[in-house]
């Protein structure tokens, strides 16, 4: 069985930054790293592949939609144990980060690869849409469960647990092919060792253009759900009214405030 694991490099902002007048961010303020959730979804895929009897021929394929900056993340996935990497890129995709648009690209990849299981991270830590995976499931009309915290193989299908708001857990069974979005903490992602990092370079990896997927950039842009008008800085708030004095005085004032506010 083939397991497809979509991954991305996420942007974070280090230190100081400024927005220009048009509400755009200088890309130099961005720092790229692997999305935290992806290590968990890849680990889940690797564990499924390893737990099956050796003869079954599992293949774990990682895919990203990114320019060449995505290569580093893919190599890290190969070093962790993925068998093959795919990167989809077309210059016309520059600036496209809408979850529905990315899902449309991934859907074309999935139709080509025909995986038995797709494991996505619940969300990415930069834009946190928590939407790409389930949008992909919708486009492929796959059974899916979002925010999965445990997976077990169950005959030809899977038994999974999903996290509900408030800490309850729902246990579900679903048949394959299927898509799951994986929550952090579901497992302990392995770390690559030196041999694996070197070996990663010799694993197969390919770059696909939109035309290889029979997609046109207008198809992708049309399904995008939203357009960013501008970026805004977060308000700094009014600032706190400061309580001065020794710990004793601070504690006294806190007791007073808590009592008043809870009674109100």
């Amino acid at each position: 069985m083939k397991i497809l694991v979509p991954v991305k490099q996420v942007a974070s902002i280090d230190g100081d930054f400024t927005l220009d007048g048009a509400g755009e961010l200088d890309p130099r303020a961005l720092h790229w790293q692997a999305n935290e959730w992806d290590a968990f979804s890849l680990e889940a895929a690797l564990q499924l592949a390893e737990s099956s009897s050796a003869g079954e021929g599992f293949e774990v394929v990682v895919v990203t939609v990114a320019d060449e900056h995505g290569e580093e993340g893919l190599r890290a996935c190969l070093a962790m144990g993925a068998d093959r990497a795919l990167r989809v890129w077309d210059p016309a995709l520059a600036g496209v980060d809408d979850p529905l648009a990315i899902a449309a690209v991934l859907a074309a990849v999935a139709r080509r690869e025909d995986p038995g299981l797709i494991l996505c991270g619940v969300q990415s830590s930069d834009s946190a849409n928590a939407a790409t995976g389930v949008a992909l499931a919708g486009l492929l009309e796959l059974p899916r469960v979002a925010v999965v915290t445990a997976i077990e193989q169950d005959g030809g299908g899977l038994t999974v647990q999903r996290e509900l708001d408030g800490g309850a857990v729902e246990v579900l069974r679903l048949s394959l092919p299927a898509l799951l979005t994986i929550q952090t903490g579901i497992n302990e992602p392995r770390r690559a060792n030196l041999r694996a990092i070197k070996l990663a370079r010799s694993k197969p990896s390919a770059t696909l253009a939109l035309s290889d997927l029979d997609l046109d950039v207008s198809d992708v842009r049309e399904v995008a759900g939203a357009r960013t008008v501008r970026l805004l800085e977060r308000g700094r708030g009014e600032g706190a009214s400061m309580i001065e004095g020794p710990a004793e005085a601070i504690a006294g004032r806190i007791v007073e405030l808590v009592t008043r506010e809870l009674r109100a």
């Binding site: 529905l100 849409n129 389930v134 919708g138 979002a146 708001d165 939203a226």
Partner: peptide, 24 residues
């Protein structure tokens, strides 16, 4: 709502029907 339940179907509806969409 941006809740555990909605996250399991709302993005799929948005993608299939090509709706405008934003979460969270």
């Amino acid at each position: 709502g941006h809740t555990a339940d909605s996250l399991g179907f709302a993005p799929a509806v948005a993608a299939r029907l090509r709706l405008g969409f934003a979460s969270d």
